[in-house]
């Protein structure tokens, strides 16, 4: 009788243990993204223009250089930062100056971010500057969307495709 009680106790403990495991394996549910919202993700990898233009080396400068290093044009490696702006329904949602990557600042600017908006109709405008101009932008794009709840709108910047791509 005592053995039966002990086996029953073991069964209860083991079943309680696995019940706990089974519960925590999928519960409680986690609300990662609020209901009634949509998400805009904007991303690009784009190099700004080089800082300053190329310069022709003088004959004296070339003479001082090792023979295998002689190049006529002296082009700076550093790149300008890229400026990005995002407007939703005419309101500025985001503006950021993205520095060039790399230890020498000679790599592309890398950008990836996301923005929550309420589901529904929205006009979205994006602008990007990759030169040293002080006014205006080099690339602009805009579109009208009706975003469903939980919908993901991807905004990519692809110069080879002519600028901004909305997907």
């Amino acid at each position: 009788m005592r053995d039966i009680a002990k086996y029953a106790g073991q069964a209860i403990v083991l079943l309680a243990l696995v019940a706990g495991v089974g519960f925590l394996a999928s519960s409680p549910a986690y609300q990662h993204f609020p209901e009634g919202q949509a998400l805009i993700k904007m991303t690009f990898v784009h190099g700004g223009q080089h800082v300053g233009g190329c310069r022709r080396r003088t004959a004296a400068e070339l003479e001082e250089m090792a023979a295998n290093m002689r190049r006529l044009m002296d082009c700076p490696r550093d790149r300008l930062p890229v400026v990005i702006e995002l407007d939703v329904d005419g309101q500025r949602v985001h503006r950021e100056v993205i520095a060039a990557s790399g230890l020498h600042g000679d790599g592309p600017a890398v950008y990836y971010d996301s923005f929550q908006v309420a589901a529904g109709a929205h006009s979205i405008a994006v602008r990007l500057r990759d030169t040293d101009r002080e006014e205006g932008f080099d690339y602009e794009g805009s579109a009208e969307f009706v975003l469903e709840p939980s919908q993901l709108l991807v905004v990519q910047f692809r110069p080879e495709a002519g600028g901004f791509v909305f997907r």
Partner: peptide, 24 residues
């Protein structure tokens, strides 16, 4: 008693709102 089940198939056009996390 409680078989392991999947969520709906992945859809990258949508954000997964509620997920049943394995808390372990």
């Amino acid at each position: 008693v409680k078989p392991a089940l999947s969520h709906a198939p992945a859809d990258l056009g949508k954000v997964a709102g509620i997920v049943n996390l394995d808390w372990f």
